[in-house]
Structure formats: C-alpha cells, structure tokens
Design a binder for these strands. Sequence first.
DNA 1: CGCCGGTTTGAAGGCGGTCAATGGGCGTGG
DNA 2: CCACGCCCATTGACCGCCTTCAAACCGGCG
Lengths: 237, 237
Amino acid sequence: MTTDPGVIISILTAGRDGAIAASVSTRTLSVPRGGQVIRSSKTPEAVYLVCQGFAKAHVGTVDGARQTLALYVPGDVFDLGAFLLGQASVETSALTPMQLAAVPCSTLRSLIDERRDLALALWRRLAMQHALLQEWTVGLGRRLALARTAHLICEVSERLSVTSPSDDLPFPLTQVELADVLGLSPVHVNRVLQQLKGEGLIEIRNGHLRVCNRPRLIELGDFDPTYLRRGDGEGPR
Amino acid sequence: MTTDPGVIISILTAGRDGAIAASVSTRTLSVPRGGQVIRSSKTPEAVYLVCQGFAKAHVGTVDGARQTLALYVPGDVFDLGAFLLGQASVETSALTPMQLAAVPCSTLRSLIDERRDLALALWRRLAMQHALLQEWTVGLGRRLALARTAHLICEVSERLSVTSPSDDLPFPLTQVELADVLGLSPVHVNRVLQQLKGEGLIEIRNGHLRVCNRPRLIELGDFDPTYLRRGDGEGPR
DNA sequence: CGCCGGTTTGAAGGCGGTCAATGGGCGTGG
DNA sequence: CCACGCCCATTGACCGCCTTCAAACCGGCG
C-alpha cells in the first residue's frame, strides 16, 4: 500500500527548511487506539511519521509502573533513535486511532546517503526531541505536581496550536495516561486538574482542552515559550 | 593552540566503527573545576570532546533549584544538540578540572559535508545520549530514591569501567551535585548513600567509588545492563 | 439493565523535603 | 603554629506533597 511520497517527505522536513520533497516508497498503516507500533528490544523495521492521531513513547518498570517519555502529534517523526542504534529502547503505542506513514529502514538508509539535506533535517528532528525531553526531565526532577501539569499543558497546547489554530484543542489523554506522563498517581492528577479548572485556567471536556489563562499557566509551569522554536535559528544546512 | 587532530577525531567515533580519522583543526582548552563551558541561550561556538575530567549538563528553575541532565566522562562529546539547533538549551560546567578538545561549528559543518561516516557517527552519538536520558527520565518519574541512586551508580560505573577497568572508580561528585542529578535534596542523598554503604553495596572514599555487590545493585536499581551497549548493533553505516 | 472504563472524593500513611545544628577536612591568614 | 572560615558530610525532628486504599459516581454500550 503506497501513498503520495512527496507529501510525506515534505511534511517530514517542514518547519525551517521549507518543503523538501523526495520520491520514496512508503507504507501507510492504520493503528487502533491502544495499538502498539513498536515493541521495545525489537530490531526496528521503519521510521514512522504521524499523519493523524496521537501516540506516546513509554517504558515500564519491574514493579508495574509506566513512564511516558514523549507524546507524538501529527507531523512528528518517531523512532529515529531506534533506526540509528538498531534497537528500540521504548515502546510506542497509539493514544487514538492513527494514520502513520512508515519509511522502511532500508529505504531511509539509502535516502540519507543521497540526500544530505534530508539527513540533516532528520538529525535536527532528533535534536529537537532531545531538547524536549531535557525540559521535561527537569520537571520530573524538580517541579511540583501543579507546575509539572501546567508545564505539560503549555507544551502540548503550543505544539498543537501550530497545526490546529483554534483555542479548543484535541486532547485525548485519559487521566491515567496523563499520570504516566506526569510521573504521578492517577488520583493526584485528578486533584491537580480540579485545581487548574477551579482557578479558571483550563477547561477539559470530552477529549478537548481549552486554555483560558495562558499567561498564568506559563508562570505556574515555569514554561519557556521559546524552547519549542529552537531549530529555526543558526545551524548546519 | 592545536593538538593532534587525527587522535581527536578517532576518539570521537571510536566504539563501533573502529577508528575514523580526519584532519581537522581543533583547539584544546583547560577548564577549572566549576568552570562553565557553555552558557544556555548562547549561540554555540563549538562542539566539545572530553579528553580528561568530568562535566555535567544542567538547567536551573525559577525557584533556584537545579537539575542535572547528563554526566560527561572522558570520550564523551557534548552539545551536539546546540550545534544542530543553533542554540544551547542547557549549561555545561566542569565537575573536575578538565581538558577539552573544541571542534568549531564552522569546521564541523564542512566536516559533516565531506565525511558521511563521521556525520553518521555523531548522529548516532546523539541517539545514544537520547536513549540514556530516556532511561534516566524513567527513574526520575517512577523510581524511589534508593532505586534511583542505585541506578545512577550502575550507569556511571558501567560507563567508567570501559576506560578505567579497575573496580575502584573515580567519582568526584559531591552529595550536593549528586542531589542535582538525582532530583533529591542533599540531605536525602546522604541518607540513601548511608543505606547503600550500610548494606555493603558500595564504598565511597575521597572521590572514589567502589561497587562491592553489583548484582544486588542492579536488582535494586532496576538496571538494564544492555542499554548502554545499544548502538553496536544494526543501523546505517 | 448491568457491566466497564474513567472520573471523583475521602481518609490514612509514607517518602522525601525543610530546617537546624554538629562535626570534620582543608586552605588561608594571623 | 594555631585560629578562623568555608565547604562538605552527617544527624535529628518535623512537616507536607503525594501515594495508596477504598468507595461512590457517571456515561457508554452490549
């Protein structure tokens, strides 16, 4: 099953280089909610581009707890790390029904040989994901639950507002899934959300999020609105 | 000030590709203990290779707390992300007196144009650092202080044992610095270390660490001894 | 209607933080 | 040589954020 390859690759590299198009055979695949895209410690078969839906990267601990390390929204590429290292270290699964474009590893290998601009764009994507995880790690280590939650909402709403400019954003995470991201118990996530709602900062209804008081939320979460824009500056071309 | 460039670049890419040598002008620089190598939100000037000493990457929060995100030991390369994105998002400073080799960004830009193998090796380095941070983030989110500390000791001792095969490893972190890494208070770090010493798992004396019961420490820290070896497997060449 | 996943609320307890004081090693200066 | 100061390690008491446990509630769906 193939789809328009030019579109896919231009999405892949959109954001600062303009559109870079390349002809490459990809497979599109549908994943149901909860479906697993990548199993940890499996040799990777492809790198994936999110066309529709939400996904998460997560790992489990011995005592049954789980920690989510990244959220992927439409336009994101995931498991570049596994492609480079030859082994996945996290699981990736769908938070909603998804549409993915899969670029097989063999294809990608020859692609980065021929297209230096594309290789560089993908490299930069990994760097951005790394910067995102760094910021998130600070929150897990040093911020209280309320600030951590506010920070997450700032980040997600910022990333989503690029593609969906409305202020009523899709936000399909259950509170249990939120707890996995935030490193909290589901019960406490509930209490924190209650508080944020109670202070009129956000509203959440049937899978949609509305940020009512963004400045206050940014202040609460110690959020740096610029760090998502990194990668639009200097650097190799 | 220049040094033997071939040596530097072969260290840069040692580990799975064998030695890749390239002629490139670098500067060596010495940094005193506590010295700052990279300031956040500054445009990066170079990418650095650790020749001697320890360094850390860290960020501060508004309320004065700090979180360390990575430790660098001899052989490590740092601030590849800043090079790619054109802006540093973390500070890097020396935990001990250090010797660094600095590869200027301009040099590196032309280098990755000419040497695909080198570009790929550096890309893979970033992927490995990302995998390391992922594993660490899980600990901050989901592991108790004791397990988190045990995990850190496992990771550091594993990384150090590659270069210094003795079981008496250099470990120059103060308990305050450890607290920044572990996301704990200095006081609690002390108590955890006491417990680990009390159970005969480790010994720490004047900047040196000795792991006495590695299997138990691995179990305690929920440590996966294989994840540091990722990157020796399949993947693009 | 009854099950089921998700949300909400309450109560009790523990992990780790904060505050505070003590002690030790070391370099500096008297 | 000793005194002083500084940083780091250590220890104790108390406090609070968050977890755990438990139960009720709610909407969707077979």
